[in-house]
């Protein structure tokens, strides 16, 4: 299944919260350009996995290597510098600023302008980059709208757009379609995945919606009780008995009936 050399290597990854084991000896390789869906019931360890890869949570044991470089122990911003970025289940944006200002800050930091205290943020170069991002993520109409006045779906788009401006090689999305209406979810994912494919970004995303998983991913990692119980293409995964029983819950419902 893995054709390219792995860009991300996870070995013997363990995370314990007291007696609770949130990650139990996880081993997985992710290849460059893959679109990987991470599925699992609530509490299966999906977000914990994303948090460990992005440095938000330190693992209890194990190794996470990105292009050969060990990530465990690195601060979150160093992991961003290395080339891994993320979005959040609850959008993490600057709520008192406009969409344009949010993206300008992201662009300015990504362009290392923050290291130069004498650089004005609002430059023609950054403005041109801003226009580009606004176009690609269809955020033009909301450019001057304050985030607190935005709909949930637009905040999610902004959150992802901010994560992408640093040109990461791996992007982790934590439940990108949560809080987005059924009618909007495919349009939303088309915008996001279209933009990410153009950039050739390797994407891992946590998702509960199996329609989204079936449509957009090339590989599924199914989590159950902190372990990966299935690692296969989406069609096969969604038909897998274990996945149906422990992730989708079909067996469970049948038994109940």
């Amino acid at each position: 299944m893995i054709s390219n050399p792995p860009i991300l290597q996870v070995r013997d990854l363990v995370k314990k919260f007291g007696a609770v084991v949130a990650a139990n000896d996880i081993n997985v390789d992710i290849s460059k350009g893959e679109i990987v869906g991470i599925i699992g019931a609530n509490g299966a360890g999906k977000t914990c996995f994303v948090n460990m890869v992005t440095g938000y949570l330190p693992p209890t044991a194990g190794s996470i290597k990105f292009e050969g470089e060990e990530l465990v122990g690195l601060e979150t911003r160093k992991i961003t510098h290395a080339g891994i970025s993320r979005s959040f289940q609850v959008s993490q944006v600057f709520h008192s600023m406009t969409v344009g200002e949010n993206l300008m800050i992201a662009l300015a930091i990504a362009n290392n302008r923050a290291l130069d205290a004498l650089s004005l943020m609002d430059t023609p170069e950054l403005r041109s980059k801003l226009d580009n991002v606004l176009n690609r993520y269809k955020l033009n109409a909301q450019k001057d709208t304050t985030v607190s006045a935005l709909a949930q779906g637009v905040r999610k788009l902004l959150d992802i757009a901010m994560a992408v401006v640093s040109k990461p090689r791996i992007l982790l999305l934590d439940e990108p379609t949560s809080g987005i209406s059924v009618e909007e979810k495919f349009d939303f994912m088309d915008i996001v995945m279209g933009a990410l494919k153009e950039d050739g970004v390797t994407v891992l995303f946590v998702e509960h919606d199996m329609e989204i998983v079936a449509r957009y991913v090339s590989r599924v990692l199914a989590f159950y009780q902190g372990e990966i119980i299935a690692d296969m293409p989406p069609k096969k995964a969604l038909a897998d008995k274990k996945v149906q029983e422990f992730v989708i819950g079909k067996e469970h419902h049948k038994k109940k009936k």
Binding site: T54, T76, V93, H95, M97, I105, I109
Partner: peptide
């Protein structure tokens, strides 16, 4: 008006995002 300066409001609003942007 510099990036450092603009980070004032950004930090007040959301420290997590500032860190994940790489600063």
């Amino acid at each position: 008006k510099t990036t450092f300066g603009k980070l004032t409001t950004a930090i007040r609003d959301n420290e997590i995002r500032v860190e994940y942007l790489g600063f």
